[in-house]
Simulated scan of single mutants.
Amino acid sequence: MKALGAGAALGALGWSTLGAGGGDTGGTSTVTDLDEHTGTVHDVQTLISGPPSNPDRPADFFYEPTGLHVAPGDVVRWTFTTPDHNVVGIHPAFGMRRRVPLGVDAFSSPLMGFRPDTIPGDMVEPPAPPAEEGGSDGNETTGTVTGTMTETTGTGTTGTETGTTMTGTTDGGDGGAMPAGPVPDTWLLSLQTPGVYDIICSPHEGFGMAMRIVVGDETTAPFETSDPEALPEPRAGPVGLSRVTLTDPALQPETVVERGTVSWSDLESVGGEDEGDDDGDDEGDGTEAGTGTTGTEAGGTTY
């Protein structure tokens, strides 16, 4: 397993960070970009939408897509379109019963949001959500909302800028160009070991922010169940509404492999139909199996 991206300070044996920095430290090696990566890069966004699909949460906090099938060695790139999220594999190192393949080390991104270098030093209030800053086409103020997130194959992709580089710029006052607004940060993870990986956002786990990645065609997982009551009690098991998300029929490993991507709006727990809309997956949700491109609005306002 390789963790790739700016700010990914991961020292577990067998990982490799990809981003700024240099040197080898205890089984990790830092490089500067993804030029040497020849596999597919799959994009996931961290999103918030309202009104909530469940009265037990103030809004829907979710990864989009929520289910993802990748090949061994592929990279998953999370873009923190809304801030205050992270990416945490459910692992005994974090006090939880393992929900990643045996032999896979613990992994977690930092708590992430906008790139610090795009936040002015005199900013007091947090940036407005992308949907409120103008430009529903993703090419104006933020440059990173739907329309810029595309599958990447091959070379020319940096671990810190692809999918998040601003389209517009403003004069920084000293003649130099600077981003036109806060830019969502990214975190990338390469997954080599086949199997089922369950992931949570620790700040919003109780609200159901969890996702499943199936690597390769290995769909057997000793922890798999469609009954939330069969899960271990928290903290060994998932907390709150993540118990519902991870046991949703739409996230069964076989279904994830068959469909390639599963949108948040496809989950039965948020009003979707289990495998019943295969002919209608392209109703404007921006998600196509195998592409990793996102932008689904799960009803109401999506940020």
Rank of each mutant, 00 (worst) to 15 (best):
Gly19Tyr: 04
Gly7Cys: 08
Asp248Asn: 13
Thr82Cys: 06
Phe62Thr: 03
Val270Cys: 02
Pro110Val: 05
Thr25Ala: 14
Arg115Asp: 03
Thr158Gln: 12
Gly67Arg: 00
Leu251Ser: 02
Phe62His: 10
Asp227Phe: 02
Thr164Cys: 11
Asn86Gln: 15
Thr81Lys: 07
Tyr63Lys: 02
Thr294Phe: 08
Gly284Gln: 15
Met178Gly: 09
Ile48Met: 01
Phe62Arg: 00
Asp282Phe: 13
Ser242Leu: 01
Glu273Asp: 15
Gly5Asp: 01
Pro194Trp: 05
Ala106Phe: 08
Thr30Asp: 09
Thr164Ile: 13
Phe207Trp: 08
Asp171Gly: 14
Ser29Val: 07
Arg259Trp: 06
Pro182Trp: 08
Glu218Asn: 13
Val87Phe: 10
Gly290Lys: 04
Ser269Trp: 13
Ser136Glu: 11
Leu241Tyr: 03
Ala221Pro: 06
Ile119Asp: 07
Ser109Ala: 09
Glu275Asp: 15
Phe207Gly: 00
Leu241His: 00
Thr150Gln: 15
Gly138Arg: 04
Pro184Gln: 07
Leu102Thr: 10
Thr150Ser: 10
Thr157Tyr: 13
Asp185Trp: 09
Pro65Arg: 03
Thr40Cys: 12
Asp217His: 10
His91Lys: 10
Ser242Trp: 04
Asp282Trp: 08
Ile200Trp: 04
Glu132Lys: 03
Glu132Thr: 08
Thr220Lys: 14
Leu34Ile: 06
Asn54Ile: 01
Gly154Ser: 10
Trp15Thr: 14
Asp35Tyr: 13
Pro83Gly: 09
Thr118Glu: 06
Leu191Gln: 04
Ala221Ile: 03
Ala250Asp: 06
Glu151His: 09
His69Ser: 07
Val124Trp: 08
Pro222Ala: 11
Thr28Asn: 05
Asp198Ile: 00
Thr165Asn: 13
Gly134Ser: 02
Ser16Glu: 10
Leu68Tyr: 02
Gly121Asn: 12
Gly172Asn: 10
Met149Gly: 06
Met1Tyr: 03
Asp217Gln: 15
Leu246Asn: 08
Thr155Pro: 05
Ser242Asp: 01
Thr157Leu: 12
Gly67Lys: 00
Glu64Gly: 00
Val124Tyr: 11
Met1Asn: 08
Gln252Lys: 14
Thr118Leu: 09
Ala12Arg: 10
Pro110Ile: 05
Thr160His: 11
Glu297Asn: 14
Pro129Gln: 05
Glu275Leu: 05
Glu140Thr: 10
Ala236Ser: 15
Pro51Ser: 13
Leu189Asp: 01
Tyr197Gln: 00
Gly175Phe: 09
Ile213Gln: 02
Ile48Ala: 02
Asn54Pro: 02
Pro55Thr: 12
Thr160Leu: 03
Pro249Asn: 12
Gly22Phe: 11
Glu161Pro: 02
Ala230Gly: 01
Met209Arg: 03
Asp285Val: 02
Ser269His: 07
Asp122Arg: 01
Val214His: 05
Glu64Leu: 09
Gly23Arg: 06
Thr255Phe: 04
Thr225Trp: 07
Asp171Glu: 15
Gly173Thr: 11
Gly173Ile: 02
Glu218Val: 03
Glu283Ala: 08
Thr169Leu: 10
Asp35Ile: 04
Met112Asn: 02
Pro120Gln: 09
Trp15Asp: 00
Thr186Asp: 01
Gly208Gln: 04
Thr46Val: 13
Ala250Val: 02
Glu273Val: 11
Gly173Phe: 12
Val100Met: 09
Leu13Glu: 15
Ile213Phe: 01
Ala59Cys: 06
Thr160Lys: 12
Arg77Cys: 07
Ala289Val: 03
Thr167Phe: 06
Ile200His: 01
